[in-house]
């Protein structure tokens, strides 16, 4: 194992962490909401993908075409019917505690439905193929994951910067009252933001499930990695989130070189170092 190997491995891992992070980053940006069940919804989506694949025999990546709309609808309705009722008066407790309750419900519901045995989605030849780069072999699946993350970040940046719905997201985030006075329905905008967040959850879930085992309790760790990526990168921009994901991936990758049980701890340590030295993250939005 040399440094280049570790570096590339870290960047590729960072792609996966960016996928975990991007939906969190989005809903925090639009409505200051933190979804504690984010990781558990990733796992739920993985189980939905498992069921879809079981019923249709599709490749996981094709199954995404089914899983994404399912998750987006769940996200929209969750926001519209449940979370919107807890928002709007500056008290961060209710929405946070509701998603906390959801996290526990999802974990236990998955446990009841699927037992605690871990499973994995088979990606066929994608799983084992690799691309030779000089003396290094780059796994096709991790490479594809990173590309997916980059594409998703660019698409979301484009939506936010250039489209009508993106303007509505930013305006509602700036001043929900004035946004409603010009005709923007905050409850609908919030639900749309959650729907997009859940679409990214679907994508993250399938890439996670093709790459490693998952079980009903895999959610919280994904939430934490996503959260660390968001904070390391700095709130307010998707490019920041991508950078945060890559830094976290690198930290874990180099940590694992020291000792296998240092991998996750190194990620946490980098998170706290960033918090100490650059509390607004590496790439904060200009004030």
């Amino acid at each position: 194992m040399n440094v280049i190997d570790t570096l590339i491995g870290g960047l590729l891992l960072g792609g996966l962490y960016t996928l975990f992070a991007i939906g969190l980053s989005l809903i925090f940006g639009v409505m200051r909401l933190v979804n504690i069940a984010h990781g558990d919804f990733i796992v739920l989506a993985a189980y939905i993908a498992y069921l879809v694949i079981g019923a249709t025999g599709l490749h996981p990546l094709v199954a995404l075409l089914v899983v994404i709309p399912i998750m987006a609808v769940i996200g929209y309705l969750l926001q519209k019917w449940v979370l919107n009722r807890t928002m709007g008066d500056d008290d961060v407790l209710p929405p946070l505690l509701v998603t906390f309750g959801l996290a526990v419900i999802i974990q236990n519901a998955l446990l009841a439905a699927f037992t605690s045995n871990s499973m994995r989605l088979s990606a066929g030849s994608l799983q084992t193929s690799s691309l030779p780069l000089g003396s290094i072999q780059i796994g096709l699946l991790p490479l594809f994951t990173l590309l997916m993350a980059v594409v998703l970040v660019i698409v979301l940046e484009f939506i936010f910067a250039r489209t009508r719905i993106g303007r509505a997201f930013r305006a509602t985030s700036d001043d929900p009252q004035i946004a409603s006075a010009i005709g923007v329905r905050a409850d609908h905008i919030y639900a749309l933001a959650m729907a997009i967040s859940f679409a990214t959850i679907a994508i993250a879930s399938v890439f996670l499930a093709m790459r490693s085992n998952f079980d009903p309790y895999s959610g919280p760790a994904r939430l934490i990695y996503g959260f660390e990526a968001v904070i390391i990168g700095g709130l307010g921009s998707f490019y920041g989130t991508l950078a945060g994901g890559l830094v976290l991936g690198l930290a874990q990758s180099f940590g694992a070189q020291i000792s296998p049980n240092m991998q996750i701890l190194s990620g946490h340590l980098v998170f706290f170092i960033i918090l100490a030295l650059r509390p607004r993250g590496l790439f904060p939005k200009a004030p």
């Binding site: 933190v34 934490i224 946490h268």
Partner: peptide, 26 residues
């Protein structure tokens, strides 16, 4: 460090702190 995290993000930050301490103990 944790108090630098805005409102709701403090919650997850405190969780990361707990995970960190847990990993050190293991």
């Amino acid at each position: 460090l944790l108090f630098r995290l805005e409102g709701a993000y403090f919650a997850i930050g405190s969780w990361v702190a707990a995970e960190t301490i847990y990993l050190v103990f293991t």
